[in-house]
Design a binder for these strands. Structure first.
Lengths: 221, 221
DNA sequence: GTGCGTGTAGTACCGGGGTACGACGCGGGG
DNA sequence: CCCCGCGTCGTACCCCGGTACTACACGCAC
């Protein structure tokens, strides 16, 4: 019997996971956590085989929670599941010691097989992430001038986080919304935005949106 | 027995909904759709009492699907459920004929009671949206008489002048620049902008820029 | 160790964007 | 003829976006 902990700040998401897992006769959900701190205490109390870990959570995010779980030497293996498929997340998550990384729009069967794989000691990465993960890995090798991974010069200097923020700006999100949905302070969002504008030479977020479209960071519907 | 159709492009999300609904002995899921077109055909085939409709779906989004369901005179009532709580979504969705609008991070019980309310002819709106929705409603009273609201149709209601202004907004011009280069008073520009936003259902000029790109009024460099 | 890049957060400030009004001239269709 | 859509302009007002700092924790590199 595989014991599983669910860590996600969205109640409905947890519900969906729980129902899926409980429908399998080789799995049991031993707890639900709405943030990283809860996840830590529940892991130390129940020692689940697998922790389904969302990244975006208040108080303590899934990456940091994963890092602490692994560092504590717990037997629990962490399977990160999130809606965001950004490079940095995958990279940091796996580097923090996670055994796998899946995207929420995976099929239920894929999720189940991923959990079983992780529980048995294997690692899993969502197919859609494998490509980028390799690219990110290559990026850390000595760079070749004019290589195949060069981006548009204007957004090339952006960090992953900044690129992410620029993307959602391109979706029309306000600073307040970005703060809420990414669990940040608005002041932090503003800091990011200011740096993005400086790096890209944009005057305001409108021009940043235009840049996002021109560089295909976001694409027209 | 309340029959329900689930329309969402994320398999896991559909699974969560289905499990939640099937656990209730007064509800049955009669179908699952992964995009707007599937939703339309399944509605015409099964005539469900309620359609749980996600907004962001490929091929045909939830808003347009809702509009066509209602226009076809189907008895099915549409309950829009999405992760995003943007004003214009709620506004467009309800105006398209939806009976309700909930956010995905609602508690399962809230979702269930929402479905029952909609099935019985009532309308529901997520508490966090009610306030803004009322404001938006009052604000739009004197304007557009519920015309079709596809992407292109949104800018179709614009006058030549307004379309011109929207175009240069899409180029990143500020109100001051527009006034100078078009030999207008800034107050005039502001008036135009306000009308453009009202007609297109945009919250601010950023969303207007996005709309300009999506409708190919302006094209990426 | 020291330094740097990154991400986080805060305060204070200002200017532009957007709203809510009201107003006026013009041209075309009832 | 008169009304209405359209384009124009104005004032007053509020809030968000953006700037300019400072600050701290962390991981990594030298």
């Amino acid at each position: 019997m595989t014991t599983v902990l669910i860590a996600d700040d969205q109640p409905m998401q947890r519900f969906g996971f729980r129902m899926l897992l409980e429908s399998q006769d080789d799995m049991t959900v031993v707890g639900e956590a709405a943030n990283g701190h809860e996840a830590l205490s529940l892991v130390s109390r129940h020692h689940p085989d697998v922790a389904l870990m969302d990244i975006r959570m208040p108080l303590l995010d899934g990456i940091e929670a994963t890092r602490r779980i692994i560092r504590a030497g717990a037997r629990t293996r962490v399977l990160i599941v999130t809606t965001f498929d950004l490079d940095r997340y995958a990279y940091d998550g796996l580097r923090a010691g996670a055994s796998g990384f899946l995207i929420k729009d995976a099929l239920p069967e894929e999720l189940l097989s991923g959990i079983r794989a992780v529980a048995s000691g294997d690692a899993v990465v969502a197919p859609s992430l494998t490509r980028r993960l390799l690219d990110a890995y290559v990026q850390h090798l000595p760079t070749v001038p004019g290589g195949p991974f060069t981006l548009d010069a204007r957004i090339a200097t952006l960090t992953e986080r900044e690129r992410q923020i620029l993307t959602v700006i391109g979706q029309g999100w306000t600073n307040t919304e970005i703060a809420e949905r990414l669990h940040l302070a608005e002041s932090t969002v503003k800091t990011h935005v200011t740096r993005i504008l400086a790096k890209t030479g944009s005057r305001d977020r409108v021009q940043a949106v235009i840049l996002a479209y021109d560089t295909h960071l976001v694409t027209p519907a």
